[in-house]
């Protein structure tokens, strides 16, 4: 930074002409570096060519900024058709509302089978035990899973940001369940009405995809990746419990 020795006579001021002109150019754009300015001034004291260049550069800049400012055509009417239509506005909302309804239905189905299983299970002898679970426990497990999916749909409708993460698991579940349901239906091991109730899952899956596609921007989320910050106090030690209303979630992606 202290001169360019290929240009004798310029480096004694700590800056060669090229560097000086680059710094003057930045200064003309309001992007100057205060530390550099002193060396620029020192160079200018001894360099008439750079003083002339600065005057010329100012003139040229003014001409370039003002001389080419002819207005362009108004394109608003021509290009507006390419913009997302009003459908985009309600598509996401409708999909979320639908997902919430599906979640509620699924949760009710799960609760119903949970209650049904509890009521029957006194009367039912566990004659069949598979992999350590009797019929009653297998039914409980399936009911819990159905209830959980209902809650997951509801949560996904509320916090769209995390919905995408649910979809692969749900897709796998639906695919496996579809195959098994088909086999069980053919073998007469399940009533058609029970299989029809699985359609709720498929509808939820499709709506989930629609919500994810309609809201590419980060939607609301409970932010597991976030850190708990006290307002104005910086990071809080894990054991220091801040008052909930004096703190906020801050995502790393928001900070960056």
């Amino acid at each position: 930074m202290t001169g360019n020795h290929t240009i004798p006579g310029d480096d004694q001021h700590g800056m060669d002409c090229d560097r000086c002109r680059e710094a003057m150019s930045a200064a003309l754009d309001g992007e100057s570096d205060a530390a550099e300015q002193a060396r620029v001034d020192a160079h200018l004291d001894g360099c008439a060519a750079c003083r002339a260049w600065r005057r010329d550069a100012e003139t040229v800049t003014r001409r370039a900024r003002t001389g080419v400012a002819e207005p362009g055509p108004d394109l608003v009417a021509l290009v507006l058709d390419a913009a997302p239509g009003p459908r985009a506005r309600w598509r996401g909302t409708a999909a979320r509302a639908g997902l919430a309804v599906v979640g509620a239905v699924q949760a009710v189905l799960g609760l119903t089978s949970l209650l049904g299983a509890s009521m029957q299970h006194d009367a039912m002898a566990d004659s069949i035990v598979v992999l350590g679970a009797g019929m009653a426990h297998a039914t409980h497990e399936s009911a819990a899973w159905n209830l959980a999916l209902g809650v997951a749909f509801l949560a996904g409708a509320l916090w769209t940001r995390h919905l995408a993460g649910l979809l692969p698991a749900l897709g796998a579940f639906i695919a496996v369940l579809a195959v098994l349901s088909g086999i069980d239906l053919l073998a007469g091991r399940v009533e058609p009405a029970r299989v029809v109730s699985h359609v709720v899952l498929v509808v939820g899956f499709v709506l989930g995809i629609a919500v994810v596609r309609a809201a590419p921007r980060s939607g609301p989320a409970p932010t597991p990746g976030g850190r708990w910050w006290a307002r104005g106090e910086g990071p809080v030690a894990p054991h220091g419990a801040p008052a909930p209303d004096a703190a906020r979630w801050e995502r790393e992606s928001d900070v960056a």
């Binding site: 002409c17 000086c20 002109r21 680059e22 150019s25 930045a26 008439a48 010329d56 001409r63």
Partner: peptide, 27 residues
Amino acid sequence: SRVARARADLVDALSEPPAAERPPRSG
């Protein structure tokens, strides 16, 4: 640096024609 070089090029191109009177560009 690109802006500065563009400026230098424009100075050369747009500054007044009697080039003989101008100080030679150094640096």
